[in-house]
Protein backbone atom coordinates (compact mmCIF):
# COMPACT_ATOMS: atom_id res chain seq x y z
CA UNK A 1 0.00 0.00 0.00
CA UNK A 2 2.66 2.39 1.07
CA UNK A 3 4.99 1.40 -1.72
CA UNK A 4 2.29 1.81 -4.30
CA UNK A 5 1.53 5.24 -2.94
CA UNK A 6 5.20 6.06 -3.14
CA UNK A 7 5.36 4.79 -6.69
CA UNK A 8 2.36 6.91 -7.52
CA UNK A 9 4.00 9.90 -5.99
CA UNK A 10 7.15 9.30 -7.99
CA UNK A 11 5.16 8.90 -11.16
CA UNK A 12 3.48 12.22 -10.59
CA UNK A 13 6.82 13.77 -9.83
CA UNK A 14 8.41 12.37 -12.97
CA UNK A 15 5.58 13.65 -15.11
CA UNK A 16 5.81 17.05 -13.51
CA UNK A 17 9.54 17.12 -14.17
CA UNK A 18 9.07 16.19 -17.80
CA UNK A 19 6.44 18.83 -18.35
CA UNK A 20 8.75 21.23 -16.63
CA UNK A 21 11.61 20.22 -18.92
CA UNK A 22 9.75 20.88 -22.15
CA UNK A 23 8.31 24.09 -20.81
CA UNK A 24 11.64 25.29 -19.53
CA UNK A 25 13.29 24.53 -22.88
CA UNK A 26 10.60 26.56 -24.61
CA UNK A 27 11.06 29.18 -21.96
CA UNK A 28 14.87 29.37 -22.25
CA UNK A 29 15.33 29.17 -26.00
CA UNK A 30 12.09 30.94 -26.60
CA UNK A 31 11.93 32.84 -29.81
CA UNK A 32 15.20 31.48 -31.22
CA UNK A 33 13.45 28.15 -31.91
CA UNK A 34 11.31 30.12 -34.34
CA UNK A 35 14.32 31.95 -35.78
CA UNK A 36 16.13 28.66 -36.49
CA UNK A 37 12.98 27.05 -37.90
CA UNK A 38 12.44 29.98 -40.25
CA UNK A 39 16.07 29.87 -41.38
CA UNK A 40 15.82 26.15 -42.14
CA UNK A 41 12.57 26.75 -44.01
CA UNK A 42 14.16 29.55 -46.01
CA UNK A 43 17.18 27.43 -46.91
CA UNK A 44 14.97 24.62 -48.17
CA UNK A 45 12.76 26.91 -50.19
CA UNK A 46 15.24 29.05 -52.02
CA UNK A 47 18.97 28.96 -52.76
CA UNK A 48 18.89 32.75 -52.69
CA UNK A 49 18.05 32.72 -48.99
CA UNK A 50 21.36 31.63 -47.49
CA UNK A 51 23.52 34.43 -48.86
CA UNK A 52 25.26 37.24 -47.07
CA UNK A 53 23.50 39.91 -49.10
CA UNK A 54 20.08 38.48 -48.32
CA UNK A 55 20.85 38.41 -44.61
CA UNK A 56 22.08 41.97 -44.75
CA UNK A 57 18.82 42.87 -46.49
CA UNK A 58 16.77 41.20 -43.76
CA UNK A 59 18.63 42.93 -40.96
CA UNK A 60 18.59 46.28 -42.73
CA UNK A 61 14.83 46.01 -43.22
CA UNK A 62 14.19 45.55 -39.51
CA UNK A 63 16.95 47.75 -38.13
CA UNK A 64 14.67 50.73 -37.47
CA UNK A 65 12.15 48.43 -35.82
CA UNK A 66 15.01 46.99 -33.77
CA UNK A 67 15.98 50.42 -32.48
CA UNK A 68 12.40 51.18 -31.48
CA UNK A 69 11.88 47.76 -29.90
CA UNK A 70 15.10 47.97 -27.88
CA UNK A 71 13.89 51.21 -26.33
CA UNK A 72 10.24 50.35 -25.87
CA UNK A 73 11.12 47.03 -24.24
CA UNK A 74 12.03 49.04 -21.12
CA UNK A 75 8.45 50.29 -20.91
CA UNK A 76 7.09 46.75 -21.28
CA UNK A 77 9.68 45.55 -18.77
CA UNK A 78 8.41 48.05 -16.23
CA UNK A 79 4.87 46.69 -16.60
CA UNK A 80 3.51 49.67 -18.51
CA UNK A 81 2.48 47.72 -21.63
CA UNK A 82 3.63 49.83 -24.53
CA UNK A 83 3.97 53.36 -25.83
CA UNK A 84 1.24 53.90 -28.41
CA UNK A 85 2.69 57.30 -29.29
CA UNK A 86 5.66 55.70 -31.08
CA UNK A 87 4.52 56.77 -34.58
CA UNK A 88 3.85 60.28 -33.32
CA UNK A 89 7.31 60.52 -31.74
CA UNK A 90 8.98 59.18 -34.88
CA UNK A 91 7.15 61.54 -37.22
CA UNK A 92 7.47 64.55 -34.96
CA UNK A 93 11.19 64.22 -34.28
CA UNK A 94 11.80 63.67 -37.99
CA UNK A 95 9.80 66.74 -38.98
CA UNK A 96 11.48 68.97 -36.40
CA UNK A 97 14.88 67.69 -37.55
CA UNK A 98 14.04 68.57 -41.16
CA UNK A 99 12.64 71.94 -40.14
CA UNK A 100 15.81 72.94 -38.25
CA UNK A 101 18.20 71.68 -40.94
CA UNK A 102 19.02 75.25 -41.97
CA UNK A 103 20.90 75.72 -38.70
CA UNK A 104 23.19 72.80 -39.46
CA UNK A 105 23.07 69.05 -39.13
CA UNK A 106 24.08 68.90 -35.45
CA UNK A 107 21.42 71.38 -34.33
CA UNK A 108 18.84 69.57 -36.41
CA UNK A 109 19.54 66.17 -34.90
CA UNK A 110 19.72 67.55 -31.36
CA UNK A 111 16.39 69.34 -31.85
CA UNK A 112 14.83 66.14 -33.20
CA UNK A 113 16.04 64.14 -30.23
CA UNK A 114 14.91 66.80 -27.77
CA UNK A 115 11.41 66.82 -29.29
CA UNK A 116 11.10 63.06 -28.94
CA UNK A 117 12.47 63.06 -25.41
CA UNK A 118 10.08 65.84 -24.42
CA UNK A 119 7.12 63.70 -25.46
CA UNK A 120 8.68 60.82 -23.55
CA UNK A 121 9.07 63.03 -20.49
CA UNK A 122 5.40 64.05 -20.61
CA UNK A 123 4.36 60.42 -20.96
CA UNK A 124 6.69 59.44 -18.13
CA UNK A 125 5.33 62.06 -15.75
CA UNK A 126 1.69 61.30 -16.45
CA UNK A 127 2.07 57.52 -16.38
CA UNK A 128 4.73 57.36 -13.68
CA UNK A 129 3.54 59.97 -11.21
CA UNK A 130 -0.18 60.25 -11.88
CA UNK A 131 -0.50 56.55 -12.78
CA UNK A 132 -2.70 57.09 -15.81
CA UNK A 133 -3.37 53.98 -17.85
CA UNK A 134 -0.35 53.82 -20.19
CA UNK A 135 -2.21 52.59 -23.28
CA UNK A 136 -4.97 55.19 -23.03
CA UNK A 137 -2.68 58.08 -22.18
CA UNK A 138 -0.11 57.41 -24.90
CA UNK A 139 -2.96 56.88 -27.36
CA UNK A 140 -4.36 60.30 -26.55
CA UNK A 141 -0.87 61.79 -26.87
CA UNK A 142 -0.70 60.17 -30.30
CA UNK A 143 -4.01 61.84 -31.32
CA UNK A 144 -2.92 65.22 -30.04
CA UNK A 145 0.52 64.96 -31.64
CA UNK A 146 -0.86 63.73 -34.94
CA UNK A 147 -3.48 66.46 -35.04
CA UNK A 148 -0.93 69.09 -34.09
CA UNK A 149 1.48 68.03 -36.83
CA UNK A 150 -1.24 68.04 -39.48
CA UNK A 151 -2.47 71.42 -38.30
CA UNK A 152 0.96 73.02 -37.91
CA UNK A 153 2.25 71.88 -41.30
CA UNK A 154 -1.27 72.09 -42.76
CA UNK A 155 -1.18 68.44 -43.75
CA UNK A 156 1.86 68.86 -46.00
CA UNK A 157 5.10 66.96 -46.22
CA UNK A 158 8.39 68.78 -45.83
CA UNK A 159 11.50 67.93 -47.78
CA UNK A 160 15.05 68.16 -46.43
CA UNK A 161 16.54 69.22 -49.78
CA UNK A 162 14.13 72.16 -49.94
CA UNK A 163 14.59 73.22 -46.32
CA UNK A 164 18.20 72.37 -45.67
CA UNK A 165 20.79 73.50 -48.18
CA UNK A 166 24.22 72.05 -47.49
CA UNK A 167 23.17 70.05 -44.44
CA UNK A 168 20.45 68.31 -46.44
CA UNK A 169 22.88 66.00 -48.21
CA UNK A 170 24.38 64.91 -44.90
CA UNK A 171 20.89 64.34 -43.50
CA UNK A 172 19.71 62.29 -46.45
CA UNK A 173 22.92 60.26 -46.54
CA UNK A 174 22.64 59.50 -42.84
CA UNK A 175 20.68 56.33 -43.50
CA UNK A 176 22.65 55.47 -46.62
CA UNK A 177 26.12 55.46 -45.08
CA UNK A 178 28.08 52.23 -44.95
CA UNK A 179 30.63 51.61 -42.24
CA UNK A 180 33.57 49.23 -42.63
CA UNK A 181 32.94 48.94 -46.32
CA UNK A 182 29.59 47.21 -46.48
CA UNK A 183 27.74 47.28 -43.18
CA UNK A 184 25.10 50.04 -43.14
CA UNK A 185 25.19 52.58 -40.34
CA UNK A 186 21.61 51.86 -39.28
CA UNK A 187 22.47 48.19 -38.67
CA UNK A 188 25.44 49.22 -36.53
CA UNK A 189 23.25 51.63 -34.55
CA UNK A 190 20.59 48.95 -34.08
CA UNK A 191 23.11 46.38 -32.81
CA UNK A 192 24.67 48.98 -30.52
CA UNK A 193 21.21 49.72 -29.09
CA UNK A 194 20.57 46.02 -28.52
CA UNK A 195 23.91 45.49 -26.75
CA UNK A 196 23.49 48.65 -24.69
CA UNK A 197 19.89 47.75 -23.88
CA UNK A 198 20.84 44.26 -22.74
CA UNK A 199 23.63 45.68 -20.59
CA UNK A 200 21.45 48.34 -18.99
CA UNK A 201 18.57 45.94 -18.44
CA UNK A 202 20.49 43.11 -16.80
CA UNK A 203 23.63 44.63 -15.33
CA UNK A 204 22.82 48.07 -14.01
CA UNK A 205 20.96 49.33 -10.97
CA UNK A 206 18.43 51.08 -13.18
CA UNK A 207 17.62 47.86 -15.04
CA UNK A 208 17.14 45.93 -11.82
CA UNK A 209 14.87 48.64 -10.46
CA UNK A 210 12.78 48.52 -13.64
CA UNK A 211 12.54 44.75 -13.27
CA UNK A 212 11.36 45.02 -9.69
CA UNK A 213 8.76 47.65 -10.62
CA UNK A 214 7.52 45.42 -13.43
CA UNK A 215 7.38 42.35 -11.20
CA UNK A 216 5.69 43.97 -8.27
CA UNK A 217 4.92 47.65 -8.12
CA UNK A 218 4.02 47.72 -4.45
CA UNK A 219 7.12 45.81 -3.37
CA UNK A 220 9.30 48.12 -5.43
CA UNK A 221 7.70 51.11 -3.76
CA UNK A 222 8.13 49.63 -0.28
CA UNK A 223 11.79 48.87 -1.01
CA UNK A 224 12.36 52.57 -1.33
CA UNK A 225 12.83 52.79 -5.07
CA UNK A 226 11.78 56.15 -6.47
CA UNK A 227 9.15 54.54 -8.65
CA UNK A 228 8.06 57.72 -10.42
CA UNK A 229 11.60 58.57 -11.45
CA UNK A 230 12.44 55.09 -12.74
CA UNK A 231 9.24 54.75 -14.80
CA UNK A 232 9.80 58.25 -16.14
CA UNK A 233 13.36 57.22 -17.04
CA UNK A 234 12.09 54.17 -18.91
CA UNK A 235 9.72 56.34 -20.96
CA UNK A 236 12.42 58.89 -21.77
CA UNK A 237 14.88 56.14 -22.76
CA UNK A 238 12.26 54.62 -25.02
CA UNK A 239 11.35 57.96 -26.57
CA UNK A 240 15.02 58.73 -27.21
CA UNK A 241 15.57 55.45 -29.06
CA UNK A 242 12.30 55.97 -30.94
CA UNK A 243 13.21 59.47 -32.03
CA UNK A 244 16.63 58.30 -33.30
CA UNK A 245 14.78 55.70 -35.37
CA UNK A 246 12.39 58.45 -36.48
CA UNK A 247 15.23 60.65 -37.73
CA UNK A 248 16.71 57.71 -39.64
CA UNK A 249 13.29 56.93 -41.12
CA UNK A 250 12.84 60.54 -42.24
CA UNK A 251 16.28 60.49 -43.79
CA UNK A 252 15.49 57.21 -45.53
CA UNK A 253 12.18 58.49 -46.91
CA UNK A 254 13.67 61.91 -47.79
CA UNK A 255 10.43 63.43 -46.47
CA UNK A 256 9.17 64.57 -43.11
CA UNK A 257 5.48 63.76 -42.85
CA UNK A 258 2.88 63.13 -40.15
CA UNK A 259 2.34 59.57 -41.37
CA UNK A 260 5.98 58.51 -40.96
CA UNK A 261 6.32 55.67 -38.50
CA UNK A 262 2.77 54.39 -38.89
CA UNK A 263 2.57 50.76 -37.84
CA UNK A 264 5.78 50.83 -35.81
CA UNK A 265 3.78 50.75 -32.58
CA UNK A 266 2.11 47.44 -33.32
CA UNK A 267 5.22 45.95 -34.90
CA UNK A 268 7.27 46.87 -31.85
CA UNK A 269 4.71 45.23 -29.55
CA UNK A 270 4.77 42.15 -31.74
CA UNK A 271 8.56 41.92 -31.62
CA UNK A 272 8.73 42.52 -27.89
CA UNK A 273 6.01 40.06 -26.97
CA UNK A 274 7.15 37.34 -29.37
CA UNK A 275 10.60 37.85 -27.86
CA UNK A 276 9.37 36.52 -24.54
CA UNK A 277 8.46 39.65 -22.61
CA UNK A 278 5.09 39.54 -20.92
CA UNK A 279 2.82 42.55 -20.79
CA UNK A 280 2.70 42.17 -17.01
CA UNK A 281 6.34 43.21 -16.92
CA UNK A 282 9.50 42.03 -15.22
CA UNK A 283 10.15 39.14 -17.57
CA UNK A 284 12.30 38.65 -20.65
CA UNK A 285 15.34 40.52 -21.93
CA UNK A 286 16.64 42.48 -24.90
CA UNK A 287 18.27 39.38 -26.44
CA UNK A 288 14.78 37.92 -26.74
CA UNK A 289 13.50 41.15 -28.26
CA UNK A 290 16.27 40.94 -30.87
CA UNK A 291 14.97 37.44 -31.64
CA UNK A 292 11.47 38.85 -32.02
CA UNK A 293 12.72 41.53 -34.41
CA UNK A 294 14.61 38.89 -36.42
CA UNK A 295 11.49 36.73 -36.61
CA UNK A 296 9.52 39.61 -38.13
CA UNK A 297 12.27 40.22 -40.69
CA UNK A 298 12.77 36.55 -41.53
CA UNK A 299 9.05 35.91 -41.74
CA UNK A 300 8.37 38.54 -44.38
CA UNK A 301 11.54 37.58 -46.28
CA UNK A 302 10.66 33.88 -46.37
CA UNK A 303 7.04 34.56 -47.27
CA UNK A 304 8.11 36.89 -50.07
CA UNK A 305 10.45 34.18 -51.35
CA UNK A 306 7.57 31.69 -51.34
CA UNK A 307 5.46 34.25 -53.18
CA UNK A 308 2.76 35.03 -50.63
CA UNK A 309 1.19 38.45 -51.15
CA UNK A 310 1.17 41.20 -48.53
CA UNK A 311 -2.41 40.63 -47.41
CA UNK A 312 -1.91 36.93 -46.76
CA UNK A 313 1.37 37.79 -45.05
CA UNK A 314 -0.45 39.89 -42.49
CA UNK A 315 -2.86 37.00 -41.82
CA UNK A 316 0.04 34.59 -41.25
CA UNK A 317 1.81 37.13 -39.06
CA UNK A 318 -1.30 37.60 -36.92
CA UNK A 319 -1.76 33.86 -36.45
CA UNK A 320 1.89 33.30 -35.55
CA UNK A 321 1.78 36.25 -33.15
CA UNK A 322 -1.17 34.87 -31.19
CA UNK A 323 0.14 31.30 -31.30
CA UNK A 324 3.63 32.20 -30.04
CA UNK A 325 2.29 34.30 -27.21
CA UNK A 326 -0.20 31.56 -26.32
CA UNK A 327 2.50 28.88 -26.20
CA UNK A 328 4.74 31.14 -24.19
CA UNK A 329 2.01 31.94 -21.66
CA UNK A 330 1.15 28.24 -21.41
CA UNK A 331 4.73 27.19 -20.73
CA UNK A 332 5.02 29.89 -18.07
CA UNK A 333 1.83 28.64 -16.44
CA UNK A 334 3.11 25.06 -16.52
CA UNK A 335 6.27 26.18 -14.79
CA UNK A 336 4.15 27.91 -12.19
CA UNK A 337 5.72 31.25 -12.96
CA UNK A 338 2.68 32.97 -14.31
CA UNK A 339 0.76 35.25 -12.10
CA UNK A 340 -1.94 36.13 -14.60
Amino acid sequence: METSMQANKEKIDVRKREVGKISSIINKLGVYVLVIALMILGTIISPKFLTASNFMNIIQAVSLLGMVAAGVSFITYSGNFVDMSIPCIMAFSGMIAVDTLRYGIVVSIVCGLLTGSAIGLINGIVVGKLKANPIIWTLSVAFVGNGFMRWFYSGKQIYPDVKGGAAADVFINLSRTDVFGRIPLIVIVMITFMVLGQFVMTKTKFGKQVKLIGSSYEVAKMTGINVNKVVCGAFILSALATSIAGIFLTSLAKTGAFYNGEGYDFNAVTAIVIGGMTLNGGRGDVVGVLGGVLVIGLLSNVMTLIGINTFSQSIVKGIIFIAVVGINARSLRKLGRDDA
Partner: peptide
Protein backbone atom coordinates in the same frame (compact mmCIF):
# COMPACT_ATOMS: atom_id res chain seq x y z
CA UNK B 1 -12.17 32.22 -26.24
CA UNK B 2 -8.48 33.12 -26.55
CA UNK B 3 -8.76 35.67 -23.74
CA UNK B 4 -10.86 33.60 -21.34
CA UNK B 5 -9.68 30.06 -21.96
CA UNK B 6 -6.15 30.39 -23.38
CA UNK B 7 -5.57 33.29 -20.96
CA UNK B 8 -3.71 35.50 -23.43
CA UNK B 9 -3.82 39.24 -22.77
CA UNK B 10 -6.73 40.85 -24.64
CA UNK B 11 -4.46 43.57 -26.02
CA UNK B 12 -2.40 40.90 -27.81
CA UNK B 13 -5.31 38.73 -28.92
CA UNK B 14 -7.30 41.57 -30.44
CA UNK B 15 -4.19 43.11 -31.98
CA UNK B 16 -3.62 39.75 -33.69
CA UNK B 17 -7.21 39.31 -34.86
CA UNK B 18 -7.26 42.92 -36.05
CA UNK B 19 -4.34 42.15 -38.38
CA UNK B 20 -5.85 38.86 -39.48
CA UNK B 21 -9.31 40.24 -40.24
CA UNK B 22 -7.87 43.28 -42.01
CA UNK B 23 -5.71 40.96 -44.12
CA UNK B 24 -8.72 38.77 -44.93
CA UNK B 25 -10.79 41.77 -46.00
CA UNK B 26 -8.07 43.05 -48.33
CA UNK B 27 -7.43 39.57 -49.66
Amino acid sequence: FLVAKAKIHSFIVTLGTMTIVQGLIFL
